[in-house]
């Protein structure tokens, strides 16, 4: 089944995936598409000052490829921790993460960096643009990091900025752009070299309602056009309507519906 509409959430049966473990905290359904993101029995415990603080508890997750998956929950529920683990930035206390079929929890630091470089585009709450670089240069930097040649990077960066509606802002520094425009530059940067996965952390948190919605519409449209998988962490209920599927995280546990 292919997503037909962005207006209503869609859930996918996942009968093509391996059977979930009995202890899964999220009742996994069968679905026709391969899982772009899969997490098995993820646990994360932070230790500090002699105490231990569980952040995630036995999380099971399957995100089919080509959908926009929203991960919602209140502050402190563990959303960003889960995203960090799924992106290979944080190592879980135990459990496994498969991205595009590869077990990233078995990878070395160098292999993980290479995997992220080739397969994941990031969008951050605080945009994280280089303030000294223009919009085009920020996108170019991402392309150069991926080994794209200087000349091609410039052309590709301008194309991407055009796709996010910022062709006329290519030479502007981030300080001269609005919050929405900065996030659109960040989207262009995330789409550089067309990674199969896009992970976004609270992409609308720093934006007003109108800008936030516009940015999410743009991100989802571009992802759908390219058949890319988007995992978006947010606690912004205004953007729930653009997602294909929504999961909730509360107290480190995944649920299909909000518990509170």
């Amino acid at each position: 089944m292919v997503v037909s509409s962005l207006q209503s959430p869609v859930t996918y049966p996942i009968h093509s995936l391996p059977a979930p473990a009995a202890s899964s905290s999220y009742p996994v359904e069968h679905q026709p598409r391969r899982a772009a993101i899969a997490a098995d029995h993820l646990n994360m415990v932070f230790r500090s000052g002699g105490g231990s603080y569980p952040a995630l508890s036995d999380v099971q997750l399957r995100v089919p490829s080509g959908i926009v998956q929203l991960l919602m929950g209140p502050s402190g529920s563990g959303k960003t921790t889960l995203l960090s683990i799924l992106a290979g930035i944080l190592t879980p206390t135990d459990g496994a993460v498969h991205l595009l079929g590869e077990d990233i929890t078995q990878m070395s630091r160098r292999e993980l960096a290479r995997f992220r470089l080739e397969n994941i585009g990031f969008i951050f709450q605080g945009f994280n643009l280089f303030p000294a670089l223009t919009a085009a240069e920020n996108v170019e930097l991402a392309l150069k990091t991926k080994g794209v040649s200087r000349r091609f990077a410039r052309k590709e960066a301008l194309d991407l900025l055009e796709q996010v509606g910022l062709a006329d802002k290519a030479k502007q520094l981030p300080k001269n752009l609005s919050g929405g425009q900065k996030q659109r530059v960040a989207i262009a940067r995330a789409l550089a070299s067309d990674p199969p996965l896009i992970m976004a952390d609270e992409p609308t948190a720093a934006l007003d309602s109108h800008s936030g919605h516009a940015v999410i519409d743009l991100l989802c449209r571009l992802a759908k056009e390219r058949d890319r998988t988007v995992l978006m962490v947010t606690h912004d209920p205004r953007i729930i309507d653009v997602a294909d599927r929504v999961l909730y995280l509360e107290d480190g546990k995944l649920t299909q519906t909000p518990q509170s």
Partner: peptide
């Protein structure tokens, strides 16, 4: 001052050498 940007590059997968 640019720690977040350098962190971003690392998150994106840039090598330490870069």
């Amino acid at each position: 001052d640019h720690m977040k940007e350098f962190g971003t590059l690392k998150a994106m997968g840039a090598s330490d050498w870069m």
